[in-house]
Design a protein around this nucleic acid. Structure first.
Lengths: 216, 216
DNA sequence: TGCTAAGTGGAGACCCCCGTCCACTTGCCG
DNA sequence: CGGCAAGTGGACGGGGGTCTCCACTTAGCA
């Protein structure tokens, strides 16, 4: 897992770890647009050290968020193991949205690094979620016209909360999610057709203009 | 209304108008972070001309969006005139969200300039919406625990769509809004308490970190 | 303990953006 | 049609970001 760390000198390994910790902290607090210099300063190292360990800012971001993404994946797989498909479905959305609301950099990092992830992994996760959706529909608790793309929709909408203070964002996210889940479950009205808001589409834009100021 | 324009030389007035048009276009397409130089180039003028007419980028943004904000206000007031309070309520949300989805700069401009608006106007608009909410509740079509702050929640969530290509954003926004309206109307489940996501709170942060890259 | 390769920090190259300044051009009134 | 105030464009100052370079320090093996 950490072949890179094992051949590092011990002090270097410590620095690397501290940098990563600080990066996660700052990204969560302030979003991805914190300057590399700020991370370096807070970690008590020079900028060069950052760039020695992570060739680019994007690489640092990717490394800083792999943990969170792994959590997301685990959340989905756990949900599949749940005998109650609706509870599984609901939990996935709740947990992922909570993660997103808690960490200001989450959405942008997701957009910036997800395309890089081995597409096997992406497809697998996506497939699992599809499975979950199907089961929940079969159980009759999820509306039949729910589309898996609606997950992306939820993510994007919930991502709009980045930018309000975290405590507020969490509460707001919970209320938003509650509203949406209610529609997903009890809904009977006709909806506009599901939007093929595929992840790929959202991600494709590279950096997304106004929205995800991760530079490039 | 245009005391400023009337004493402009005719060529200058034309330039001013063209700049404004181009600004609206680019802000809508790419968000507020288009460089002033880009606007100048596309308008066929030099940067100095921009700064001669608009002391600062923020001023240009404000001017470019006053129209849209006036529309929003009109939408709310029209809705109050509607005899069917639920239809009024629904229409407000639909129209405002459509506006927002159509224009990439909308959300950021709103955040950047709304605090500047004469607070009389803000309060009035806000008051009107509250009225609308009360009526819709009295009519029994809007769930009793809907909070006017939920409007902000909708705006923020829908604002998350800035950053996807416009056509997609519009369709996605429509579906999102449909989901939410369904909850607002038919909802019966208990929700987490309404979040005091007041406009002021959202706006207070000055520039909102990752999310609203309007510089300052 | 001494030597060396690994590690380090900070200056600075490079780029992009906002906003200013000033020498030049041009509409328009008399 | 001539003169001047209004208008103009592009170079430039200042700031802030990413990433590089290089002279110096230090861990850790023999």
């Amino acid at each position: 897992m950490n072949a890179s760390q094992s051949q590092l000198r011990t002090d270097a390994a410590e620095n690397r770890a501290r940098v990563l910790a600080v990066a996660r902290e700052l990204f969560a607090e302030r979003g991805l647009d914190v300057p590399m210099a700020a991370i370096a300063r807070r970690a008590g190292v020079g900028v060069a050290t950052l760039y020695r360990r992570f060739p680019t800012k994007e690489a640092l971001v990717a490394e800083a968020f792999t943990e969170q993404f792994a959590v997301c994946q685990a959340v989905i797989e756990d949900a599949l193991a749940d005998p109650d498909p609706w509870r599984g479905f609901r939990t996935v959305i709740e947990k992922v949205c909570l993660l997103q609301a808690t960490d200001r950099g989450f959405t942008a990092a997701f957009v910036a690094t997800f395309p890089e992830m081995r597409s096997k992994v992406r497809e697998h996760t996506w497939h699992c979620f599809g499975e979950l959706v199907d089961r929940a529909k079969a159980g009759g608790q999820l509306r039949a016209d729910f589309s898996p793309h609606d997950l992306t929709l939820v993510l994007v909408a919930n991502g709009g909360l980045a930018g309000v203070p975290v405590e507020v964002a969490v509460a707001a996210s919970q209320r938003l999610v509650a509203y949406l889940l209610e529609s997903f479950r009890t809904g009977t009205d006709e909806l506009p057709p599901p939007v093929p808001l595929s992840l790929d589409l959202v991600l494709s834009q590279g950096r997304l203009g106004t929205h995800f100021p991760m530079k490039a």
